[in-house]
Simulated assay, not measured.
Amino acid sequence: MKRLPTALLTLAALAMALPAQARSKKDPAEICAEAETRYQEIYGAPSSEAEGVTVVTMYKYQFCPREITVPVGTTVRWVNVDKRTSHSVKIGTDPESDRAFPEEHIEFTFLFPGSQDYICGPHWESHDMIGMVTVTE
């Protein structure tokens, strides 16, 4: 069995330690376009036509869109359009949601104005899966 040079192994280890976005060659806008296509394949209509909610898709370790602005009283629905992985949503100091598996969703209604970061519990550190919602009056 042939051994790889130590320098090559070190480079491979460093590459794996980088966040997914740093390793990925795909533009976030391209990934979000794919997420919208997946959403339409699953639900038969654009995410913008979801009734009574604002949709954020979760796809390839990204929230799409990453930042949103909504009025007080809006329900945001995070929809997992990935094919094989689960995601969660953790907003501020609130407990982390249950996992949403492919084609499942998580909802939260924002009742107070302000900006709030949110994360995917299992993927925010390893994949930089972080978003922000700004709630206006």
Rank of each mutant, 00 (worst) to 15 (best):
K26P: 04
S115C: 07
E34T: 07
T10E: 14
P71H: 01
E34P: 08
G73E: 13
D82S: 06
S86T: 10
K60E: 13
T136D: 02
P102L: 05
D128A: 04
M1Q: 05
R3D: 09
K90N: 15
V133W: 01
G44M: 05
K83H: 13
P122W: 01
K90D: 12
T134R: 04
P95L: 11
A17K: 02
I130L: 08
A50Y: 03
C32D: 13
E96S: 12
T6I: 09
K26D: 12
Y39P: 11
G121R: 07
H105D: 14
S47K: 14
T93F: 00
Y61H: 02
V79G: 03
A15M: 12
S48P: 08
T54R: 04
A7D: 12
E103M: 10
A35H: 10
I42V: 15
Y118W: 15
H123L: 11
V79H: 05
I31L: 12
E51N: 06
Q116S: 00
T75K: 00
E30A: 08
V56G: 10
E49Y: 01
P102N: 11
E36I: 05
V56T: 02
K90C: 14
T136A: 06
Y118V: 13
E125V: 15
A29L: 02
F112Q: 15
D117F: 05
T69A: 04
H127N: 12
R66L: 06
H105Y: 12
T109K: 00
A29K: 12
R66Y: 08
D128K: 02
Y118N: 14
I130D: 08
V56Y: 04
L11V: 11
A35D: 12
Y39N: 15
V53F: 05
R66V: 13
Y59I: 11
A29W: 03
I42A: 09
K2S: 10
V72G: 09
R3W: 03
P28A: 07
T10F: 06
A100L: 05
V70M: 00
E96Q: 01
I119M: 03
L11N: 05
E107Q: 04
